[in-house]
Design a protein around this nucleic acid. Structure first.
Lengths: 231, 231
DNA sequence: CGTAGTCTTGAGTATCCTCAACGAGGGTGG
DNA sequence: CCACCCTCGTTGAGGATACTCAAGACTACG
């Protein structure tokens, strides 16, 4: 259940990390990284466990989430290649992180060694700051999405967000990779409402489905500003 | 309208910064800080302006917010004494920050100088990391609050959040300092709904009002687990 | 080919938003 | 000192939206 494929990295660059295209690689920091591979649903770091590592997604998708008292799950961050997580002032993780896609690969930086490295190498410290800034940007974006009043707007801005994050080149092609349930828990909606919003957007000509989780954006203006419907 | 009371800080500690009780002071960094004072509603840093400074709230309250195309405002962070803001990878601020309370005081760190200081002094780098970690923690908390399905739960968890943030000692006394409109824009609700939720919580015996914006928590269990109402 | 997980669609109910009116304070100026 | 105005806060009524419960279709995989 919990067998993780741990592979320590040589000081020389590892091709797994070098293979990450869109992410700005944390070059110096990678000398202390270990790469691990997870299968779908596997826990990468558990809630309430000690903060001993910082992480960076190399491939696949992961979700940072928590389960409320009423059994509802809230996803607090959707982690794509290049995204870092595991930062906290507290001694224990406030959230669990789980692999969403099968074969999700994560670089794992021992916190103490990373901090020490940052103390001696200013470049590392800057790299770490950049990583955290990005995490803030993602969270702020999520707050904006959650702040949308209607389900249609939430789903629409989520799609635009995913489009912006997926590939810089073909920005209109989205490979969601996550289930409707995950989207629902990210957007704080029920999965039925997510499904309805997506079919609604399809009939409005905003999106076109290649498969259940792959779609193309046809008309961005519909996704962008749902308030125009009132006009 | 825009006259800011700028006061450069001497290398020796400034009493304004030393006076901050609950915040862990960024000691070394304060040597390059300037303290500014703002009145209610005044803009501390504008949206789309270049990122030239990092900031820390010394006294008062500020809100980080944006205005959507439809005219709605979304508050992305509520900044209390000790909170830092202004971090971004982008060159321009994605959000505006405005003073909520009159006389809100902010320490202002020139970004370039702060970065340079961080490069030469590892303690500064750590201080900065801590500041950003705290910002992440606040944002994650906000996502959790926004993820609550009902208005009653959102307002309830918001009150608990504010209680936890206000004073470590008397955790049951809350001085909101912000208007119902601000709460509404923070929680992505209408101000009417916020008002209704508060009176509802009052009649349920969860809170008691000393004045419009000052209240005491009487029964925490009502605030944190609204799902019990179903039982 | 069956099974489990995922996705969609439907019907009814609860919740929230909008529009509206009114009350309460806090300034300001006469 | 009082009247006035303005912002803020509360409460009500009606309509729109999302949730819950439910059932059925599709997909992947053993």
């Amino acid at each position: 259940m919990n067998q993780k494929t741990a592979a320590p990295i040589m000081p020389s660059r590892d091709q797994a990390i070098g293979a990450v295209g869109r992410a700005q690689p944390a070059k110096v920091l990678d000398t202390v990284a270990a790469v691990r591979r997870y299968h779908r649903g596997q826990e990468i770091c558990g809630q309430q466990t000690p903060v001993e590592h910082w992480y960076r997604v190399l491939a696949g998708v992961a979700r940072k989430c928590t389960v409320r008292a009423d059994g509802r799950r809230q996803i607090v961050d959707l982690l794509l290649p290049g995204d870092c997580f595991g930062f906290a002032t507290q001694s224990r993780h406030a959230f669990a992180v789980e692999a969403v896609a099968d074969g999700t690969t994560v670089a794992c930086y021992p916190r103490q060694r990373a901090e020490n490295l940052a103390d001696t190498d200013a470049r590392v410290a800057r790299e770490i700051r950049e990583m955290i800034f990005d995490a803030i940007t993602r969270l702020q974006r999520q707050v904006l999405i959650l702040g949308r009043p209607t389900a249609l707007e939430r789903v629409g801005s989520f799609l635009l967000y995913m489009a912006a994050r997926s590939a810089p080149a073909s920005v209109d092609r989205i490979d969601l990779q996550v289930s409707r349930y995950d989207i629902a828990d990210y957007l704080a909606l029920s999965s039925e409402t997510v499904s309805r919003a997506l079919t609604d957007l399809k009939f409005r000509g905003a999106i076109r489905f290649a498969s259940t989780r792959q779609l193309n954006i046809v008309d961005r203006s519909v996704l962008d500003d749902e308030d125009e419907t009132a006009a």
